[in-house]
Amino acid sequence: MSQVPTHLRYTEEHEWVEPGSDGTVTVGITDFAQKNLGDIVFFELPEVGRKVEVGDPVGTVESVKSVSELYSPLTGEIIEINQDVSDNPDEVNSDPYGMWLFKIKSKGAASSNGLLDAKAYQKLISES
């Protein structure tokens, strides 16, 4: 069974979102996603400074099995990417909740609507 930390929010595209106290959010892929992808070999991450809308494709994750899109879970601006993930993409397989991908400065508190809590995400993946 996949890990689903209760303090995070989730997207239906299997990304986790951790709100910060300063209006930024940290985004990564879930344990469920990395297990289904298999061995991850490459991430294409968004450019810092890019303005994004909810659902915009912002990058890709490539595994030995497939290439999948990364989507913006919120509207805002990309303010940071995790260079460690670009240099060591396989570490996401061993620590998906410790290896974040990018950070967004969100536009307003309401922009997190539509994200799933841990219970709703657990239900989503149990039906997959």
Rank of each mutant, 00 (worst) to 15 (best):
V4C: 12
V4E: 05
P5L: 10
L8W: 05
R9V: 00
T11L: 03
H14K: 01
H14R: 02
H14M: 02
E15F: 02
E15K: 01
G28A: 11
G28D: 08
T30N: 09
A33F: 00
Q34D: 02
Q34F: 02
Q34S: 02
L37G: 01
G38C: 03
G38D: 01
G38W: 01
D39Y: 01
L45I: 13
P46T: 08
G49Q: 08
E53I: 11
P57A: 10
V58Q: 11
V58L: 10
V61R: 00
V61F: 00
K65M: 02
L70I: 04
S72F: 07
S72G: 14
T75M: 09
G76R: 05
I79W: 09
I79K: 13
E80T: 11
N82A: 10
Q83N: 12
D84Y: 11
S86K: 15
D87K: 12
N88Y: 09
N88P: 02
P89A: 03
E91D: 12
E91K: 15
N93R: 07
S94D: 15
D95N: 14
P96L: 03
P96Y: 00
G98C: 11
M99E: 14
L101Y: 05
F102I: 08
I104L: 10
K105C: 07
S106M: 15
S106Q: 13
K107N: 13
A109D: 13
A109I: 12
A110D: 13
A110F: 03
G114P: 05
L115K: 12
D117I: 01
A118S: 15
K119F: 03
Y121E: 04
Q122A: 15
Q122G: 09
I125F: 08
S126W: 04
E127R: 14
S128E: 12
